[in-house]
Simulated scan of single mutants.
Amino acid sequence: MLDERKLAVLRAIVEDYVHTEEPVGSKALVDRHNLGVSSATVRNDMAALEEEGYIAQPHTSAGRIPTDKGYRLFVDRLTTIKPMTVAERRAISAFLEGAVDLDDVVHRTVRLLAQLTRQVAVVQYPTLSRSAVRHVELVTLSPTRLLLVLITSTGRVEQRVVDLGTNVGDDLLGDIRARLNAAVSGRQLSEVQSLVVDLPTSFEATDRSVVAMIISSFLETVVERTEGRIAVSGTANLIPFGQEFHTSLRPVLEALEEQVVLLRLIGEATGPSGFTVRIGHENPYVELSTASVVATGYGPGDEAVANLGVVGPTRMDYPGTMGAVRAVARYVSQILAGE
């Protein structure tokens, strides 16, 4: 474990390298930072940091740059995450509050996150399995067809056309709607099957086949799709960092086109208050071994229903990026909670 002085030197190297894009020398550290020690002491500390693998010399006679191990220790020992300014918070709130539905929320969020961080932003749509039923609506399309609309606690809307093959009166339809909502409103989608499977038996025998068809369509609607849905924005933000990826930017961009890759990258966030930060070779894909991922969960209340985050080079402003990701996640969570 590094002592506090060497940790301060490492922190200064990371901050300077992120800001200047240039390898950092001992003289620059002494000039820019109040380390309270001589250049000779800083050189000794840098030598020790290099020997332990926290920094590296990219070429002879150059200063030092952080390694993945150095960035990891820097992130793990962060004492504060850069907060958003009052103006930034107001801008985030105003931009997101203008959304009209869940799709609009997700697309506004991913664009905003890309603009704030100047990285590639990824936002996962809320998954059905983590949502609760807010309301079920049955809308008559014709005497024998209706539209079943499921609205979840996260604002997600699912629709399904039900062809009943027989006329259904308004009174019966209203009764089905009322009993179905009484049974499932506020309940997790993962538990609704057991709540409605016997519902047809509570109706008159002549109506049970119609009720059974509606319940069957409802259960098909709440079944989780195998594929997750995501939105991506800001891939062009990586172009200025192209030289920082060891081979070329193309493999990185190709990896980011794969939905399963993105879902795995952001899919292990620990919840609305926690972060997943993967640095360089910690990523599960070799194409992203020179990239970093910062992700967190979002959702109404304390439970995350989906994740969002950013992908960028390892030379990333981690405190600022984590602050932006956290702030956006909080605002989206508040919107989904109806606050």
Rank of each mutant, 00 (worst) to 15 (best):
M316Q: 06
A132H: 10
T85F: 14
G338K: 05
T206E: 14
V252R: 00
R32L: 15
V293K: 04
P83T: 11
A132C: 13
P319V: 01
G242V: 06
S273V: 08
L263T: 13
D104C: 11
Y17G: 05
G271H: 12
V168Q: 00
V196S: 00
R278Q: 09
R72K: 15
A295M: 05
V310I: 14
S142P: 12
K6V: 05
R130Y: 14
E158P: 00
T206W: 12
I176L: 02
F74E: 04
S202M: 08
P240D: 11
N283D: 02
Q119H: 15
S209L: 11
M1L: 11
A56E: 13
G338W: 02
V110Y: 01
A40R: 14
G36S: 07
Q119G: 09
M1V: 05
V310S: 03
V293C: 07
P126I: 03
A114G: 13
H246Y: 06
L148H: 07
V293W: 03
M46C: 02
A337P: 06
D207S: 15
S209N: 09
V222N: 06
T80V: 11
L253G: 03
L262V: 12
S202I: 05
G299W: 03
D31G: 02
P313G: 01
P240V: 12
L308C: 09
P313E: 02
F203Y: 15
R130I: 07
E51W: 08
E257H: 11
V260M: 02
P58L: 07
L141G: 04
V122S: 01
L265H: 00
V310K: 05
Q57Y: 09
E22P: 05
R11D: 06
V222D: 02
R250Q: 13
L195R: 13
A182P: 00
F241M: 09
S194P: 04
L29M: 10
V328P: 05
L29T: 11
D31S: 08
L150F: 03
D76S: 15
A47C: 02
E204N: 12
A178T: 14
G280L: 08
